[in-house]
């Protein structure tokens, strides 16, 4: 254990916390806290997605709500067709039905979000910095207004999912089981992102953030690397969106709004940009503050603002940076 850095220890502590707290809530028979923990885990997953683009690649996407919402709408649309026993569409006589099986919903959410991300990324990556922030916002707003205007799936009112979708015959309406599914996914994705970060691809991506010319000079075109990162990042956030729709059993254009993009970005910055567990810390703290301050005072937003401001001014590198110090280059 001697060669573990503080950040490693912090990460292990966070994993244990995410395991123990819901277990305690289960023993105390407080299902609401399990649901709260589920919300943290899902939003953290959305943040982990953005963190891959933003932290490693320096791609400040202000449009990740688009992917979060696409994931949510895929889950909602498939479920509503299945529950109403309606045909989705047929191509050349082959009929496609809806489904309530998460194992079909997730791959489809990943596929659709990847296609959309290739399109958005292809055009957006021509710009840099603030222009990139704004063009990703523009694309997300287009999808947002499209969802509002499209009457087939509820338009502005959103779409309810009456029964939570199915996973391997488990009772997903039991909060602890649904928590387990979300927690396992978060851990798998964190493992994947950690492996990616230390892979050749990860090195190339970080090089693209630091100095594109050098990356190009060693023979790796930065555009392809950044586009790949953007697409993977979008897929992770879409997966979180599909889970979020199942958590609330409801999807609405709210999931696609720029407020959502902003919040996902805040989770990442608050926790620590580029830190593996940064979004977990950020989302956790944000949701806990919102919930507990919201219980104490109706002016919770004011106090949340003061806390956030204090974090930026006094904790460089977010909360993980505050606890674990600067990133070590070993």
């Amino acid at each position: 254990m001697a060669n573990l850095t503080i950040e490693h220890k912090l990460n292990i502590f966070l994993v244990l916390l995410l395991l123990v707290l819901p277990a305690i809530a289960l023993i105390l028979d407080e299902p609401f806290y399990i649901t709260l923990a589920t919300k943290v885990v899902i939003l953290a997953l959305a943040g982990v997605g953005l963190n891959l683009a933003l932290g490693l690649g320096g791609l400040g996407s202000f449009g990740h709500a688009a992917f979060f919402g696409i994931g949510g709408y895929i889950a909602g649309i498939l479920a509503s067709h299945s529950l109403n026993a309606e045909l989705m569409f047929s191509v050349l006589g082959v009929e496609f039905d809806g489904t309530t099986n998460m194992l079909l919903i997730w791959p489809l959410a990943l596929l659709v979000s990847a296609l959309v991300a290739v399109f958005i990324g292809y055009f957006s990556l021509r710009t840099k910095g603030v222009y990139f922030i704004m063009i990703t916002l523009a694309f997300a707003q287009m999808i947002y207004y499209f969802a509002i205007a499209w009457p087939a799936y509820g338009g502005e009112d959103g779409l309810s999912i009456y029964v939570r979708n199915q996973f391997l015959g488990l009772n997903t309406l039991d909060p602890i089981i649904f928590y387990g599914i979300c927690f396992s996914l978060l851990m798998s994705v964190l493992l994947l992102v950690w492996r990616l970060k230390n892979s050749h691809f990860g090195s190339a991506l970080q090089a693209a953030r630091q100095n594109e010319q050098r990356l190009a000079a060693v023979g790796i075109p930065p555009f392809g690397i950044k586009l790949t990162a953007f697409v993977i990042s979008a897929m992770i956030t879409a997966l979180a969106g599909a889970l979020f729709a199942d958590l609330n059993r409801f999807v609405s254009p709210d999931m696609l709004s720029w407020h959502t993009s902003g919040e996902i970005m805040i989770f990442v910055i608050l926790g620590g940009v580029g830190r593996l567990f940064g979004p977990v810390v950020g989302a956790g703290l944000f949701i806990l503050f919102e919930y507990f301050l919201g219980g104490l005072t109706e002016h919770w937003a004011l106090f949340l603002g003061i806390v956030l401001l204090a974090v930026v001014l006094f904790a460089r590198g977010g909360l993980v940076g505050l606890i674990a110090g600067e990133v070590k280059h070993d």
């Binding site: 603030v130 937003a301 603002g305 930026v312």
Partner: peptide
């Protein structure tokens, strides 16, 4: 002298503070 992202978070915090304060 800080990163643009720090500016985003700080000025977002200012929105919360001003909006919360005005509502109060």
């Amino acid at each position: 002298r800080r990163d643009h992202l720090d500016q985003v978070l700080a000025t977002y915090a200012l929105i919360l503070i001003f909006s919360g304060g005005t509502r109060w």
